[in-house]
Design a protein around this nucleic acid. Structure first.
Length: 298
DNA sequence: TCCCAGGGGCATC
DNA sequence: GATGCCCATGGG
């Protein structure tokens, strides 16, 4: 069977194995699958569901469309870039890292690591709500339950790939049904509320993107019940590609900066800012590298 | 038993 | 604006 194949030249400071590491990292994320040195994911482009596979060969990033389509190459390429952020020139970020003696090891240890995005804003926000104040493993389990029940599946070579449930479907799910999945009453209410806002069009990625300013995007998001400062920053970073997003209060950031810079783990907003102020334009990347540092001994 | 997890809302001062 | 409490489950 012949598949559509797109080859893209890999730019400096992009390492696909780092993207793969993030996509795998021992967490059971139902929205993609890592098989050896390949990643597979179902994506919706031009109202069509496509199963795509990403791998690397020599100096190329290789995209195969395994199922679905056809859609224009540019749509597929655009999606992969939103997902893996591979075309961004991150050399300026590396110069900033290298100028900081406590952080310069990050540029060596995680060379070529990029922010892995979640192009679907609705999915991002639901994911944030699900994961609030519980451990990651359990959060991924909750997401899997939600997606398996209300999402759209494609079975390919014995594995199910999913499109995240639509707002129209989730807004109608009774709280009791979500409660039965161990999603708390509060979270169920948040999910239904966010779903309704996306379903009636009052909130959308397109509308937020048109605001241009990250600060204004966050401002709009925080108005939504269930979305606080942490989630607004996370969502703008992961879905709208904001470059100056700091999820203040994040436990992982606190631990990483405590290790690397001996900064207190609580009431540390000013200390956090004093570090991040040197990374104007790359704050989100620093957040990501700090998270990255938690999972592998420096 | 305790504390903590890639939080957020709300009441209170 | 800071602080304390609640939610609600699992892991260490």
């Amino acid at each position: 069977l012949e598949h559509k194949v797109i080859r893209l030249k890999i730019p400096p400071l992009y390492d696909f194995t780092e993207s793969l590491w993030f996509l795998d990292r021992n967490l059971d994320d139902c929205m993609h699958k890592v098989l050896g040195d390949k990643a597979r994911k179902m994506v919706t482009l031009d109202n069509k569901n496509l199963l795509i596979e990403i791998s690397s060969e020599k100096n190329d990033l290789v995209i195969k469309v395994l199922n679905g389509g056809p859609v224009r190459d540019s749509l597929v390429i655009g999606y992969v870039d939103e997902w893996l952020d591979y075309t961004r020139d991150i050399r300026p970020f590396y110069r900033l890292l290298e100028n900081d003696k406590d952080l310069s090891a990050l540029a060596v240890n995680f060379r070529g690591f990029r922010v892995v995005g979640i192009p679907d804003l609705f999915e991002t926000l639901c994911w944030c709500v699900l994961g609030q104040q519980i451990n990651l493993e359990f959060a991924y389990r909750l997401k899997r339950r939600l997606v398996e029940r209300y999402g759209t599946a494609l079975n390919y070579e014995g594995i199910n790939y999913y499109v995240f449930p639509s707002p129209g479907i989730l807004k109608e799910v009774p709280v009791s049904e979500l409660r039965a999945m161990q999603i708390t009453t509060r979270k169920a209410e948040y999910l239904r509320g966010i779903s309704a806002l996306f379903d009636n069009g009052s909130v959308s990625k397109k509308k937020l993107a048109m605001l241009r300013s990250e600060a204004r995007m966050k401002e709009e998001l925080i108005k939504i019940r269930g979305i606080g400062e942490w989630t607004a920053n996370y969502a703008v970073m992961k879905s709208l590609r904001g470059m100056n997003c700091i999820p203040y209060g994040d436990a992982g950031i606190n631990i990483a900066l405590n290790r690397l810079k001996n900064i207190p783990k609580k009431n540390n907003r000013k200390e956090i800012d004093s570090v991040f102020n040197n990374f104007e334009g790359w704050k989100s990347y620093l957040v990501y590298y700090l998270w990255r540092s938690l999972r592998q001994p420096g």
